[in-house]
């Protein structure tokens, strides 16, 4: 995969901030919990995501992984705990503000803009990094020309880097499943995120595709981005992650580098149901 050049981390912020909840970590969760009525989907989760690393969240189905993503990205509001991103307390913020601060995500099953074509999907995501007003756009004056040109150029670059350039004029529904996921990643990158959350990026992919995606994720990290991912494919997780958090029944049961988590008795129990 080609190096991802477009979409450097958001300007004005360099590196991690020393937030109250974790010096040196880009994202810090403390005591995070979510109740749906009487059902406790997530309870007391603490996590520190260091910058320029791949952190993975694993756990059996229904462990609360996607709920955690939804809480972090502002899709849902937590019922307990805090989320600090880049040292800013973003607990309860609306999703678009959190994205503007430099966080982007992909969804478990791709949620694309189905009536925009491939390149327009990416251009639409440039909204948050552009400023031109409607009047400027209508008259084609001021910032609008330069911004539009830059957005198109960046979209083209991103599509090349995730290798779906040849699909640029197609509608999302015409794309094979793996390419839909790549498009979603390109779209997320167009918002110039420092932290990108991927929800099961290799689901439904054949091994060679999954391997390409892993290479892409590595490139992202090499370019200075931070990746938090939910993944079921253990080969992917073990190969790519710098650290892993394991959730079960909405609670954190283990945390650490892959080798250590692999040996953890509680993890084996959660996954295999063996008494250890």
């Amino acid at each position: 995969m080609a190096a991802v050049e477009g979409g450097a981390p958001a300007p004005g912020v360099s590196g991690p901030a020393d937030g109250p909840n974790g010096a040196g970590s880009l994202l810090a969760l403390a005591g995070l919990g979510k109740r749906f009525g009487g059902l406790e989907a997530l309870a007391d989760v603490a996590l520190e995501v260091p910058p320029r690393q791949v952190t993975a969240i694993i756990g059996p189905n229904g462990a609360g992984k996607t709920t955690l993503f939804n809480l972090v990205t502002g899709d849902l509001k937590p019922t307990a705990g805090t989320v600090h991103f880049k040292g800013v307390d973003v607990t309860g913020w609306e999703a678009h503000r959190i994205c503007a601060l430099g966080m982007a995500r992909t969804f478990q099953s791709p949620r694309l803009f189905e009536n925009l074509n491939v390149i327009e999907n990416v251009i639409a995501a440039r909204f948050v990094r552009t400023r031109s007003s409607l009047v400027e756009s209508l008259l084609g004056v001021g910032r609008s020309r330069a911004e539009h040109a830059r957005s198109v150029a960046m979209a083209e670059e991103l599509l090349r880097s995730v290798e779906i350039w040849h699909h640029r004029g197609h509608m999302p529904k015409e794309l094979p499943y793996g390419d839909r996921r790549r498009l979603e990643i390109a779209r997320a990158l167009a918002t110039e995120p420092e932290l990108i959350l991927m929800d099961e990026p290799t689901a439904g992919m054949i091994p060679s595709e999954a391997a390409e995606l892993m290479a892409l994720i590595r490139t992202l990290v090499d370019d200075g981005r931070t990746v938090l991912l939910i993944e079921h494919n253990m080969n992917v997780v073990m190969a790519i992650s710098d650290s892993i958090m394991v959730l079960n029944f909405g609670r954190k049961i283990a945390e650490g580098p892959p080798a250590q988590v692999q040996q953890d008795a509680k993890v084996l129990e959660a996954y295999l149901g063996v008494e250890a």
């Binding site: 678009h96 694309l112 997320a188």
Partner: peptide
């Protein structure tokens, strides 16, 4: 473009800022 993103998938649009 932002408007049409909202039309197609408001949740994804919000996640894209």
């Amino acid at each position: 473009y932002a408007a049409r993103a909202c039309r197609d998938d408001p949740r994804a649009a919000a996640a894209m800022g």
